[in-house]
């Protein structure tokens, strides 16, 4: 052991000693919950009692459960709308704040502010903008654009759209920083050469910037897809505990919490939905990885 490091005083167990606290936590709250979720998903366990093995019953039930399909549809729709927005808008924003012009530091910090705000605070802020007596509806009414307030938060579809707007708004600054790092690696000579050839800024953006930051776009796409499938707090704060009227705006995490906890919590069934959420997430991560690999190859 000393031979390959050239360092004495190293007992074989020293690395384990250093890793012990981290490993214990990861096993207890990373690995075990996953294994336990898999096991529970094949049982009829409830929150207040253990369960017996029921085979694939929970999965069969999920496939036949309209609530499950509404939640899955909402989660996937969320992803399909939010991901393209969060791949392209932050890139445009990064290009915008990249110029070394006076005051640009202020704009960067300002655009990052929504990232610092918690999901609850962001939800409260937007609730006050979108409520039936909120800012947008009041302005609309004073301009006589609408006679009835727009039901941003009281109609399931509108609530989902409102939550998407909030997610995109909060994500813009976060992914902008990713793109700023990627743009730093684009050689300036490429832009100069293209400018001499007469390419305008828009043309240069699509023919030089976009191909150069494509790997970062794939990473941002994967990350934002994973977090889109995790959306909970925005909908909870904007639409309330039920997840919109009749639970019509519930996402998968929303459904998992409602099904699995509380006095009648069906931990077995909730675990099956959890595994399905995990598989959905895994599918999109693998898709992202595949696209990245294909891009490199």
């Amino acid at each position: 052991m000393e031979a390959d490091t050239g360092l004495p005083h190293r007992a074989w167990w020293t690395p384990y000693l250093f890793l012990a606290p981290g490993l214990v936590m990861v096993v207890l709250f990373g690995l075990w919950p996953f294994v336990n979720t898999v096991i529970l998903s094949f049982t009829d366990a409830r929150i207040l009692r253990g369960g017996g093995f029921v085979g694939l019953d929970n999965y069969r039930r999920a496939v036949a459960d309209p609530d499950f399909w509404v939640a899955t549809g909402n989660s996937v729709l969320y992803l399909l709308v939010v991901v393209p927005c969060l791949v392209f808008l932050p890139l445009a924003l990064a290009v915008l704040v990249r110029a070394k012009i006076p005051g640009i530091g202020f704009f960067r910090s300002a655009f990052y502010t929504p990232v610092i705000a918690s999901a609850v605070v962001v939800g409260l802020i937007w609730q006050w903008v979108l409520r039936s007596d909120g800012l947008v509806n009041t302005v609309f009414r004073r301009l006589h654009l609408v006679s009835e307030p727009v039901p941003f938060l009281t109609d399931s579809t509108m609530l989902l759209v409102s939550a998407m707007i909030v997610t995109v708004w909060k994500g813009l600054g976060y992914y902008m920083v990713f793109y700023l790092a990627a743009l730093g690696n684009v050689p300036a000579s490429l832009h100069e050469a293209a400018a001499i050839d007469g390419a305008g800024p828009v043309r240069r953006f699509f023919s030089i910037t976009v191909p150069q930051v494509k790997p970062m776009m794939l990473l941002v796409g994967t990350l934002s897809a994973i977090s889109a499938l995790r959306v909970f707090t925005e909908i909870y704060i904007l639409g309330g505990e039920s997840g919109g009227p009749g639970g019509g705006a519930r996402t998968l995490p929303f459904l998992i919490r409602q099904v699995g906890l509380g006095f009648a919590g069906e931990t077995g069934y909730a675990s099956a939905i959890s595994i399905l959420l995990f598989l959905l997430t895994l599918g999109f991560s693998l898709l992202g990885r595949r696209l990245t690999k294909g891009d490199e190859g």
Binding site: V26, F34, G260
Partner: peptide, 23 residues
């Protein structure tokens, strides 16, 4: 150990939160 640690990054919190609560 390294592989196990990285693997746990793949489990979204929301998909293990019920079990985590039970723990």
């Amino acid at each position: 150990v390294f592989t196990v640690l990285v693997a746990t990054l793949m489990f979204p919190f929301e998909s293990v939160m019920i079990s985590m609560f039970l723990t």
